[in-house]
Design a protein around this nucleic acid. Structure first.
Length: 319
DNA sequence: AAGTGCTTCAACCGCCTGCGC
DNA sequence: GGCGCAGGCGGTTGAAGCACT
């Protein structure tokens, strides 16, 4: 004969716990320990199933539970562990002191998973999803900072192999416009981006690998560049700050740019924003324009362009 | 201010494994 | 050895709060 049932289903309370119930459970466990969950509810004077009591204790009432938002380090740990362990929430929780499997699972499903999808990363395989490449999210320095650990050189190379290199260059230009440089977008074999690409977190891309750079080595103007809320130096005229910008712009000619804009219709360009200087380009008249329009007919007086990163850039037609 | 849709997360559901009988 | 339950786990739900119109 097996064990007797843990509890009778009938007459047991379900739903949210009241403060009184919490108090009863905590008092009982403090006095008697966790012991037998089957007999606990009756002994503690609770009209709950043992399973419900265990869940309430382990997920909410346990004194060693850490409350509050997940830190950047915790989030990185979750992502890294999930890439190895998958949905083994209890195994992940075992490596994050004070966090429960339920909490990590919820955080993954409500925050991390969605963000990975927005970045074009498959949350199951942790590989780039080329069918839905979200350019603007990749260009967001916050997102890039959070997920830089996912982008090893192999991943970057796979992007190079599968994504139109001109799109990568355009993305690099957009990232420059966003006042930071995403090394992932500077690895295209055909572009001529020099070294000294510094990310918001102070990482340094030497053309081959990412290395952590001592903050004290970052030039004075770089912190302002990396923090959009601060006054920005003149990106166009100050080649010492952004020596690669001119070179990047030079890699495009007007015909190629027009072709890119036509084939990636979600990329639109705006006017009156200083982002790059190239006599082949001209500013638009005002407001958002039809993609690729008027490139050759515009005057070359200001040479200023700004691209609006698309919400979702579908590049599936490149493959 | 009210209605609607979206997001969050505590709690439940149901399956699996290990173990007592 | 087999039955059947406790405990553990991952998936799912739904109430509450929030944002937007």
């Amino acid at each position: 004969m097996g064990r007797s049932p843990c509890c009778e289903k009938d007459g047991l309370k379900k739903g949210p716990w009241t403060p009184e119930e919490d108090q009863k459970l905590v008092k009982y466990i403090e006095k008697h320990g966790q012991g037998n969950w089957r007999t606990l509810p009756k002994n503690a004077g609770l009209a709950r199933c043992g399973k419900s009591c265990r869940l309430r204790w382990t997920n909410y009432l346990r004194p060693d539970i850490k409350r509050g938002r997940f830190s950047f380090e915790e989030e990185q740990t979750i992502i890294q562990l999930h890439s190895i362990l998958g949905n083994k929430w209890s195994a992940i929780a075992a490596r994050l002191p004070g966090r429960t499997d339920n909490e990590i699972k919820n955080y993954w499903n409500t925050h991390i998973r969605k963000r990975l999808l927005r970045m074009g990363i498959d949350p199951v395989t942790h590989e780039p999803r080329f069918d839905l490449f979200n350019l603007s999210s990749l260009l967001n320095p916050t997102n890039y900072n959070c997920y830089q650990s996912l982008f090893n050189l192999d991943t970057i190379k796979s992007f190079d192999a599968l994504v139109n290199p001109d799109i990568l260059r355009l993305a690099a230009l957009l990232s420059t416009q966003n006042n930071y440089k995403n090394p992932m977008l500077f690895q295209s074999p055909e572009n001529s981006i020099p070294s000294n690409c510094t990310t918001q977190s102070g990482q340094f891309f030497d053309g081959t690998t990412l290395v952590q750079q001592n903050v004290s080595q970052i030039p004075d103007q770089i912190p302002a560049l990396l923090n959009p809320s601060q006054p920005q130096p003149n990106l166009v005229s100050d080649n010492s700050v952004q020596p690669d910008l001119q070179g990047l712009c030079d890699t495009f000619d007007a015909e190629l740019l027009q072709s890119l804009l036509e084939t990636t219709p979600d990329i639109r360009w705006m006017n009156n924003q200083t982002t790059c200087s190239n006599p082949n380009y001209s500013n638009q008249t005002s407001g958002l324009s039809t993609p690729g329009s008027d490139i050759e007919s515009s005057s070359h007086t200001s040479n200023l362009l700004q691209f609006e990163a698309p919400e979702l850039l579908d590049v599936s037609h490149f493959f």
